[in-house]
């Protein structure tokens, strides 16, 4: 009896703590959401007296704000596509032709993955000046693609490893070429992994702030992340509601993507940082 009660108290306590953590994590984000719909938003969290889309209208009419989303989209889509193509290609031999060399390349990639990314910002800046790609979306895309590729290859390779080569071989026997076998057999089977890597890279590229912040100078090239920084850096914390509205639009695509690939994501997550090789 006593044991039983104690267990129930313990269980109730952990529910309480979990709810508390959840609520504490929700509050800063909830402020952003509520402020976006509140024409009289303040810095403290409150329910809007009247819900309105006024903030959204105002901020989207401002110069360069819509363009910012377009730029974010260009950067994120190009970066994601480049990473997808080169990482699937490179992962194939690493997964299929097992050798000492292949496993060393894989470990080398993992090594590159684990360097603190921001330590590279000065030299990549200098590199783009050298290549005359500074203030240029192409330069930003290339730097972000290169930074994301090692991890993407590593994840793609792990997902490929889970698909047996027998299936591809069966397709060859049936007269399929190698590239047909990859496209028609291997890729569909590793689709969850492919979606995971793509989603992961899209979220990263869409959310990246410091690369475009450093490498771009002209306002018409700024992605949404740099616009948000400039909105509250230049105007101070004044246009709370309007900036919040812009931020809410900015985060929606990530929400949608995450929602649809959630199950794949958590699976890919534990695989990407897997302790197994």
């Amino acid at each position: 009896m006593k044991m039983h009660t104690r267990k129930r108290i313990g269980s109730a306590l952990s529910y309480a703590v979990l709810i508390l953590i959840g609520v504490a994590f929700a509050i800063p984000a909830l402020w952003l959401f509520l402020a976006a719909f509140d024409p009289e938003a303040t810095l403290a969290i409150k329910l809007p007296e009247t819900w309105s889309l006024e903030n959204f209208k105002f901020i989207l009419q401002k110069d360069g704000m819509l363009q910012g989303f377009l730029n974010s989209l260009i950067i994120a889509v190009c970066t994601t596509l480049i990473i997808d193509v080169v990482s699937v290609m490179a992962a194939y031999p690493l997964s299929r032709y097992k050798s000492k060399a292949a496993s060393n390349v894989s470990l080398g990639l993992l090594f590159l993955t684990s360097l603190p990314a921001s330590a590279m910002m000065l030299s990549t800046y200098k590199l783009l000046i050298k290549f005359r790609q500074i203030d240029n979306l192409f330069g930003v895309i290339m730097i972000m693609s290169a930074a994301g590729t090692p991890y993407a290859i590593w994840m793609m390779k792990n997902f490929m490893d889970t698909v047996s080569i027998d299936l591809e071989e069966a397709a060859w026997v049936d007269g399929a070429t190698k590239s047909q076998a990859i496209r028609k057999v291997l890729l569909p089977l590793m689709l969850p992994g492919f979606i995971t890597v793509t989603t992961y890279n899209f979220i990263n590229a869409w959310g990246n702030f410091y690369t475009p912040f450093l490498m771009l100078m002209s306002a018409e090239k700024f992605p949404a992340s740099v616009n948000i920084y400039r909105l509250y850096d230049v105007h101070g914390l004044v246009m709370y509601g309007q900036v919040a509205a812009y931020a809410v639009i900015y985060i929606i695509p990530i929400f949608v993507l995450y929602h649809f690939s959630q199950d794949n994501m958590s699976q890919g997550f534990s695989m990407g940082g897997a302790t197994k090789g």
Partner: peptide, 22 residues
């Protein structure tokens, strides 16, 4: 709770900075 914690992870750092300055 899981979703609330993950929310921080998928939120772009610039938005996190803005939220917390407020």
């Amino acid at each position: 709770t899981g979703f609330m914690v993950v929310l921080g992870w998928i939120t772009p750092e610039i938005i996190a900075a803005y939220m917390f300055s407020a």
